[in-house]
Amino acid sequence: MDAILDPILAAWRDRPGALLPVLHAVQDALGHVPAAAVPEIAAALNLSRAEVHGVISYYHHFRQEPPGRHVVRVCCAEACQAVGAEALAEHARTRTAESGVKVEPMYCLGLCACGPAVQVDEAELHAAVTPAKFDALLARLEAGQ
């Protein structure tokens, strides 16, 4: 883990307000922020472990456990609710109960004129997602494409 942490901390330790960028860099590299990284981050930024842990646990974006093979985030905010997001999220949870794909609700991707919206692995976007479209997406993810 030091091979990951050291360059990140070296790049950020002297910059103001470095904690969020450091946590992002660690999570981008490892998929989550492991508990073992907390003391080193705290020492480098002259913070207490409690302060670092407090920030990790406050923000929805930071994970303390590795995610599934894929993370599918379904927007459940008002604009997507108006076009069936809750039913889609329920469908998605049911379909992925046994799979390595993790479904999480999220609140707004800014795709509010073409909902329901879905984001895959923090990159790929899908709009106007119906249960059938979700099943096709899931099949593709499970096939490892």
């Binding site: 103001p16 307000g17 470095a18 969020l20 407090g54 920030v55 406050y58 923000y59 929805h60 974006h61």
Partner: peptide
Amino acid sequence: AGSYVCGEETALLESLEGRR
């Protein structure tokens, strides 16, 4: 990092400074 209240200006400043 996915916190809605960080759109409130003082919460945003806290976040920029590296805090909750």
